[in-house]
Every structure is written in structure tokens, then in C-alpha cells.
Write a protein that binds this DNA or RNA. Structure first.
Lengths: 219, 219
DNA sequence: CCAGAACGGAACATTATGTTCCATGGTTTA
DNA sequence: TAAACCATGGAACATAATGTTCCGTTCTGG
């Protein structure tokens, strides 16, 4: 293919200029990477470039290697998770509404698709560990607030939420929109169950934070 | 490693004889294959041989190639599913008990780990299609019997069961036993929700058989 | 004791994929 | 306008992974 500068006509940011294009590529590449790796965690890096409509070198100029890119994606996911948790904590409306919305937002953000499928495929960063710990802390707060409000089924633990998010992330049917639809369907199902304050406790010991975290050690 | 005949001392089947050992290997290999591919659908065939404690040629003597082996595993899974469905249909005890047990058995049999993770990685057989259709038919009967008994939440469809099985199959934590424990935990959660006969309908159109089946077309 | 079945595992062929490299051609500044 | 600069595209390369074949070895049955 011949090298052709992309002539943008739409623009909130200045349309041309090499820097503008580069900045746009920053976004395009990350978006493509997310889509590609969510669909197939083992996808080759060239697939990301194709999806983004750029050459491979555009990728390597930004990220020194595949692992760096994966770390970046995970980090972004955690940041998103943290933001949603903080939003939930800042909201002092009806406890159940706040809790349910938090769950819905996380499912929509699809943070756990990467988290789950990428676990063990690369060595976590120091920053990643910090962010992960932070996310855990906030999630615990969100959970405890709901529990203390007495709106949750007895026996539930924070770690259960992680497992539920991962299960919902495993739902993948057709295009992105259809997938989102299906996930909402099963989230609704689970939420009704989480709400059963008079139900008996769940069988088996809940997952521990250690069990959940261990999967990140490079196999 | 030097070739050393395995001297079995325990035996329900005659302990020695090349044929006896071969028959035993038939089982060992299938078992190993199931374990390996459930843990990692993309695992190399050599990993199966190692796990089984046999050489590669023992594998190739039985299955002409990887795909044949995968087909065999899927077929076995479907047979298991069919057997459980038939057992449920033959049981005319309390409808909810029968239904819940069916769900539990399928989760325990872990049929959907393979089904899910292998979808699209090989071209389905003619026999596979037949068995799959049969399984679907029986599952529908099991489902309808439960629904007609009025014990299911309104709006549910058979296809929802498949999706739920797949979600539960995505739960994987530590060793096999711990994983089974966790799956029971979340199955219990979901079952409570499926039982909510007075709950509102679930959001979004349910998955169609076509949507679920399409994932088998070799990508 | 021999023919043949079953096996172990090295060797091979092929593919997949991460990474490097360089010519190309916009962009910008002097 | 001209030259330096820099992001880019994509071919080329190195390598690792893995499905499959092949051959010498070992054991059983007759």
C-alpha cells in the first residue's frame, strides 16, 4: 500500500498536522487493541495494527512491545473501575440503586474481559499492583456500604462480585451491542438474587482475595 | 526414557497383556485430553501425551490428528449432556428438585468448558451436529417440563440455560475441587433467581438457538 | 522363537508471531 | 523554498511453538 496521509474533514481537534494525527492514532490504537484482545487474548500484534488501520511501526513507536501494551490496557481498565467505584461512593442516593448502578456500569465498561483473559499472560507492573490494590480497596467500600445498608443477601463477600463480573464477561454473543444486551440480561438475573436478603447463605467458602490474585502470577 | 512395561498389580481387567494396557491407555488418554484442553484449549498435543504419561505415538495411533481428538471430546461431552437430560426426563419427582438437580449435574459434568472454549477451533462433524441437535431437543423438553410446572421465572428460555452453563464454566479457581465448589456457589445464586416465579421478565430478547450455534462455524 | 502390535520420543516441516529496519513522504522551521 | 525532522507503512528477519511422521525398541501371542 502506498503511504497516504489521512485527510480528516471532521475535527474537534485541529484536523491536520502530524501531531494531531499522531494524537488521534494514540486513541485509535488503544481502542483497536482493546477490541482485538478482548475478542482474542492471544491475538497477534499485527491484528491490532490492522484493526487500527495503521502500520506496525505506529504501534512500536508507542509501546516497546506487546507486554507494555497489555499492561497499558489493564491499567486503563483498572482506572475505569476505580472511577466507577469512586462515583458510587460519592452517590448517597438509595443504597440499592447505587449498588445496582455500580454493577451495571462495570459490566458496561467491560473491564473484566481483559482482566480475566489476560491474567497470567504477562508479568504485572509495580504500578499495576498499586492500582489493583486501590481498586480492591474501593470495591470493598462500595460493597460494605451496601451490606451495611442491609440490602444484600447474607453470606456475600466482595470477592463474589469479582467472580460475578468475570462470569458476565464470559458472555459473548454476536456483535458488541448484542453482547451488551445479553450481559444486562444475566446481570438482572444475578442482581435479583443478590437482593434476596432473606435467602439462605451460599454454599462453600467464598473466594479469597488471595485466590483471585494468584492467577496473575506468570504461569 | 527407556521403554518400560507398566506392571499393574491392581486389576478389575486382566492386569497384563498388551491389549489390556492399550485399553487402559484409551481411557487414560481421553481423561488427560479432557483435563488438558479444559485448562487450556490451545494446549499442544504433546501436553496431552505428557499428562497421560504416554508417548505421542500412542495418541496418533488412536486419533489421526488433533481435530479428531477434539471432536471425540466434544462428542463425549454431548453424550454426557444427553444422558443427564434423559435422566431428568425419566425422573417424575418434584419438578423443581428434578430441574435443579439437572442443572447441578451438568455443572458438575463440566460439559460446557470444552464446548465453550473449543467452539470455532475445529470444523464440527456430521455426527456432532446430530448429537448436538439431539441434546438441544432433550434440553428443551427438560426446560418445558419445568416451565409447565410453573416453577420458573417468567420470560426464561431454554437458550438461557446454555448461557448460564457457559458462565458457570468460566469460573475457574485453583484446583478442580475448589473450582467445583465455586461453581456450586454461583449456581445456587442463579438458581434462586430462576426460581423467582413472581419476578418481572428479564431485559432484552433471549439468545436464539441460531446465535448460540453460529459460534461453531470455523472462524 | 518369531511376527506383529504398541510404544517412546527424536526429528522434521511448517506456521505463527514478536521485533527490527529502512525508504517514503508529510510537516515545519529558518 | 529548502532542508531537517519525524511518524509511518510494511517487508524482512529471527525465533519459538507445534502438528505430524518415522524408526528403533519392547512386549505378547502363538
Amino acid at each position: 500500500m502506498v503511504y497516504i496521509g489521512i485527510m480528516e474533514t471532521t475535527s474537534s481537534t485541529p484536523m491536520s498536522g502530524r501531531k494531531a494525527q499522531a494524537a488521534r492514532n494514540d486513541q485509535v490504537i488503544l481502542q483497536a487493541a482493546r477490541e482485538v484482545f478482548v475478542a482474542d487474548p492471544g491475538a497477534p500484534i499485527s491484528a491490532v495494527a490492522e484493526r487500527a488501520g495503521v502500520g506496525i511501526s505506529a504501534l512500536y513507536r508507542r509501546y516497546a512491545g506487546k507486554e507494555i501494551l497489555l499492561r497499558k490496557l489493564c491499567s486503563d481498565g483498572l482506572k475505569l473501575y476505580i472511577a466507577e467505584a469512586e462515583a458510587a461512593l460519592a452517590d448517597d442516593g438509595d443504597p440499592w440503586t447505587v449498588f445496582a448502578r455500580f454493577m451495571r456500569r462495570i459490566v458496561e465498561a467491560d473491564t473484566h474481559s481483559l482482566t480475566l483473559s489476560l491474567a497470567g499472560t504477562f508479568t504485572p507492573d509495580e504500578d499495576l499492583h498499586r492500582e489493583s490494590a486501590h481498586a480492591e480497596r474501593l470495591a470493598l467500600e462500595v460493597f460494605e456500604r451496601a451490606r451495611d445498608a442491609g440490602i444484600l443477601r447474607p453470606g456475600l463477600e466482595v470477592a463474589d462480585l469479582s467472580m460475578i463480573f468475570e462470569q458476565l464477561a464470559s458472555v459473548r454473543l454476536g456483535d458488541e451491542e448484542r453482547t451488551a444486551q445479553m450481559r444486562h440480561r444475566y446481570l438482572a438475573l444475578v442482581l435479583d438474587s443478590l437482593r434476596l436478603t432473606s435467602a439462605g447463605p451460599l454454599p462453600g467458602p467464598p473466594p479469597t482475595a488471595e485466590e483471585i490474585g494468584r492467577r496473575w502470577s506468570t504461569a
